[in-house]
Write a protein that binds this DNA or RNA. Structure first.
Length: 574
DNA sequence: TTTATTGGTG
């Protein structure tokens, strides 16, 4: 049934390319109603379907000599639907410049685009124009306004826009509801929900995820049971809700009970296992996934990266390229792949990934840039990292943290502290990673007092030091020969120190010939990681260096007897 | 024409 439509469309496309004035609006409008798969056939050899299509549709519009308001509106609506929000907005601006009166179609689509990219100024401008042209009495425009101000976090204006709607429909109610939920006002949301004249599955799902977001899974479960109708989103909201509060078994329960699963369900479950470090279970699920798509590959690759398995991540990426030719990696895949490369710390990957990005024509955005800053910083090319940092459009806390660490581990302590100051000046609140970077910088420079100050500063920013922060402090103190202080730092830790913390002390004890503390440190190391024989030999070395030959010999015997072999290359050994 | 669920950088 759709095929003849496509053919007429194709014949009209040819007319357009010959430059004849025809009814372009019909083409654009038809495109909108066609099956996505058929539309894709229209776009010749495009790597990215949506951007290719966006250019195609805009091309048709600009081919017309005098496009009318309807053609403009259809194109804007099309772009907004396809997720090309910036294009939709600039087309709207162009339309007004030409002097055409915007329609309710164009306005609501543009407002939707502004809401999605959180464009405060643009949204207000469009609102003003809609008011000027008297379009603010249309439910669709009004509902879009409610959604816009909800997404901007301006609930006062959102409520005002909502009150002005005479014929409120379910979507209008749902828009204000999700606004209150997003702003964390559960009480008001609940009040709204109860006073709704009609609820649909979206209303119920919004409430579910609202409770899930604050970790109230018991209330979410109660609502889930009460729901008159459930869809994929309802089940998936429960799964990801349980995942977020660490109740992986409950999440799995819902996953197994689901009558039908979509790829999002699988992905939520895989990322759940990833978050609690259960790579094995994630792998098992991934292998069972019937139809793997880009999203599920992204989830699995990122799982491997986050759980420090960069080699496996790159292998999976390779598999994806080889055996799933229909899947094109996107920016998110690349961010994970770059992160895997930086974990491997090999500069060769840097140039490889950059040329690869060029070959598949991926535009560099700030997220990709940040990943590259981390990569170049860790591989020793600070120059390149700092060039990338300066090229960023918006410098967020993650970019700053990556760059501070990059300076720090390349012995550029002045640059690192300067950058931290400018972060504070920019009024960007530092996070745990920022302090990891700064502490590591002081550690590399051997600046104990600055390290202490930095460690204390975390409290001022309402941050609690993690095990890694303690580990860095211990490393800093121990390297400086302040072994007793390092030991006291460990004993003051509110959490269980991991082997790396004791290992740092142990290594320093060897350097500074302190057998007493070395023995304590080694004991803890062996308790936590009995398989790592490097600890035995380190302790033996310490004994030997202070002349305790007997103990040293005994230890070496133990190593031999246990037939344990030296395992060089533990992370802290470097 | 307007609403809800997923994957990311330290």
């Amino acid at each position: 049934m759709l095929v003849p439509k496509l053919e007429t469309l194709l014949s009209k496309q040819i007319t357009v390319q010959q430059g004849k004035q025809i009814h372009g609006c019909i083409i654009i409008n038809r495109l909108y109603y066609l099956e996505p798969l058929l539309i894709r056939q229209l776009v010749p050899s495009s790597r990215s379907y949506s951007t290719g299509l966006a250019h195609y549709v805009q091309g048709i519009l600009h081919h017309l000599q005098n496009p009318d308001a309807f053609s403009w509106s259809c194109t804007i609506r099309y772009l907004s639907q396809e997720g090309q929000f910036k294009d939709a907005f600039s087309l709207y601006a162009e339309m007004s410049r030409v002097g055409l009166c915007p329609s309710t179609f164009a306005v609501s689509s543009t407002l939707r685009a502004c809401a999605r990219i959180v464009d405060k100024i643009g949204g207000r401008v469009v609102h003003g124009q809609a008011y000027k042209y008297g379009l603010c009495t249309c439910v669709y425009v009004q509902t879009s306004l409610v959604d816009l101000y909800s997404k901007l976090g301006d609930m006062g204006t959102a409520q005002k826009a909502f009150d002005e709607i005479v014929d409120k429909n379910v979507v209008s109610w749902n828009s204000i509801l999700s606004g209150y939920l997003k702003s964390g006002n559960l009480a008001e949301a609940k009040r709204m929900f109860n006073s709704m004249p009609a609820k649909d599955v979206v209303s119920w799902n919004s409430m579910l995820s609202g409770y899930a977001r604050v970790g109230n899974m018991d209330q979410a479960s109660i609502m889930f049971k009460q729901m008159p109708e459930r869809n994929f989103a309802s089940w998936n909201a429960m799964i990801s809700g349980f995942v977020d509060c660490g109740r992986i078994k409950s999440a799995r329960g819902y996953f197994d009970k689901m009558p039908q699963k979509n790829n999002i369900s699988w992905m939520a479950m895989i990322s759940g296992y990833s978050k609690c470090g259960d790579v094995e279970s994630a792998n098992v699920l991934f292998s069972k996934l019937p139809k793997k798509d880009l999203l599920s590959f992204n989830a699995m690759i990122s799982c491997l990266v986050k759980n420090s398995k960069p080699k496996e991540a790159l292998q999976l990426f390779d598999q994806m390229l080889k055996h799933h030719v229909d899947i094109q990696p996107d920016k998110l895949t690349l961010v994970s792949v770059i992160s895997a490369c930086s974990q491997l710390g090999d500069l060769r990957f840097g140039s490889w990934i950059e040329s690869y990005m060029k070959s598949i024509k991926v535009e560099r955005d700030d997220h990709l840039c940040t990943a590259l800053i981390d990569l170049y910083g860790k591989c020793g090319n600070v120059q390149k990292a700092s060039e990338l940092f300066n090229s960023l459009e918006k410098k967020d806390v993650v970019a700053y943290s990556a760059m501070i660490l990059g300076f720090g581990i390349n012995s550029k302590i002045d640059e690192a502290t300067k950058l931290f100051k400018s972060l504070i000046d920019a009024r960007i609140p530092p996070n745990l990673a920022t302090f990891t970077g700064l502490l590591t910088s002081y550690c590399h420079a051997g600046l104990v007092e600055e390290g202490y100050k930095c460690f204390a500063m975390m409290k001022d920013h309402k941050l609690t030091p993690s095990t890694d922060h303690y580990a860095t402090m211990v490393d800093l103190l121990a390297r400086a020969g302040r072994l007793q202080e390092a030991y006291e730092m460990i004993t003051s830790m509110p959490m269980q120190p991991h082997a790396g913390v004791w290992g740092a002390l142990l290594l320093a004890c060897k350097v500074h010939n302190n057998a007493q503390l070395g023995e304590i440190a080694a004991k803890h190391c062996l308790e936590l990681e009995p398989e790592t024989t490097a600890y035995y030999s380190l302790l033996a070395d310490i004994y030997a260096s202070v002349g305790k030959w007997g103990e040293a010999r005994n230890l070496r015997k133990v190593i031999k007897e246990k037939k344990l072999r030296n395992l060089p290359g533990s992370s802290w050994m470097e």
